[in-house]
């Protein structure tokens, strides 16, 4: 009996010791990266590029594994992160869709329930109209909406991440227009082509992908695109609105800071690798690393701007 007791105690002691050791040698098991959208999309693409870079260059002693958990606009995957232990072995990559879902109170969590690790990329939307549209600038578009409000519609996703900047644009322009819920950017492009809607916010890769089919009016970012230096920003045209999707990595709140630092440094190194650079260039996104204190402030500021227009997004505007 006594020997058994000793054996048990030793085991317990050893387990404690090994877990104490783990702080120094994190990670000791594969890290699970949740992608809350389906395979083949932009979130999945970047996550896999980062994963590949980390695993191929041995940036971590343990591999990263990507698990897709699509559904409910990213909420299914985000909830899985929420339910996981804050031990640094489960992380999530998502963009502003997370803010949108909590700002309109579709979900019962807020960004406060998570710890931002690092922001990797930025993709600022642009205002697109069909190639044969009469508008060549935001001003022309807005003044025409003012005169003929009945003929103008925007293709978007009600309650989605780009609906919020759309409302900000409406506020900046002082006019309102109806939003037709069609879904993701490819569906918006389809809707524009069919002539069912007049304007849509598209992600930068569509500038090249849809060349000849659409006309860009303004970049909704702080700077012009590197690959399209002639396209002015909305700010230059007098509308101070930005609509950027930033792909960020998150851990559950309460994850030890040193683990977050390890993850942030690793992901940053991966993001600076050639493979990821190539991927970002191809998908029209730019590398924009933000981490630490700066990132927390940015998240707070951005979330506040979402909450500000949430009421309008939720549906005070009708036709």
């Amino acid at each position: 009996m006594k020997t058994l007791m000793t054996a048990l105690l030793t085991t317990v002691a050893m387990t404690t010791a090994s877990s104490g050791l783990a702080t120094e040698s994190y990670p000791t098991q594969p890290i699970r990266l949740i992608v809350p959208f389906g395979a083949g999309g932009g979130t999945d693409g970047l996550a896999r590029a980062i994963q590949l870079s980390i695993n191929n260059n041995n940036l971590l002693p343990e591999p990263i594994v990507v698990a897709n958990a699509p559904g409910a606009g990213g909420a299914v995957g985000t909830r899985q992160l929420l339910a996981s232990d804050p031990d640094g072995y489960t992380i999530l990559q998502i963009h502003q869709e997370m803010f949108a879902a909590s700002a309109i109170e579709r979900v019962d969590y807020t960004p406060k329930d998570f710890e931002p690790i690092i922001q990797v990329s930025e993709a600022c939307m642009f205002v697109a109209v069909k190639e044969d549209s009469p508008y060549t600038s935001l001003d022309e578009m807005i003044s025409d909406i003012d005169e003929n409000p009945a003929d103008f519609r925007q293709a978007d996703d009600i309650g989605g991440a780009t609906h919020f900047p759309s409302v900000q644009l409406m506020n900046a322009a002082g006019v309102q227009w109806p939003i037709v819920p069609v879904g993701a950017t490819s569906a918006r492009f389809t809707s524009l082509q069919g002539g069912f809607t007049q304007m849509a916010l598209l992600s930068p890769l569509w500038l090249e992908r849809a060349a000849g089919k659409i006309r860009p009016l303004a970049v909704l970012g702080n700077e012009r695109y590197d690959f399209a230096p002639d396209l002015p920003t909305a700010k230059e045209q007098g509308y101070d609105v930005t609509a950027c999707l930033n792909r960020r990595y998150w851990a559950p709140a309460g994850t030890p800071q040193e683990y977050i630092d390890v993850l942030a440094d690793t992901i940053e190194a991966a993001a600076n690798s050639e493979e990821v650079q190539k991927y970002l260039a191809e998908s029209g996104e730019v590398l924009k690393i933000v981490k630490g204190e700066e990132l927390s402030d940015l998240v707070d500021k951005e979330y506040a701007s979402f909450v500000e227009v949430a009421e309008t997004v939720k549906g005070s505007l009708s036709n």
Partner: peptide
């Protein structure tokens, strides 16, 4: 469809620019 979305992802991954061009 779900599958064509994955094919599109594969094209982007291999630096092929899908679209009208």
């Amino acid at each position: 469809s779900v599958v064509t979305a994955i094919l599109l992802g594969a094209m982007v991954m291999h630096n092929l620019n899908p679209g009208p061009l």
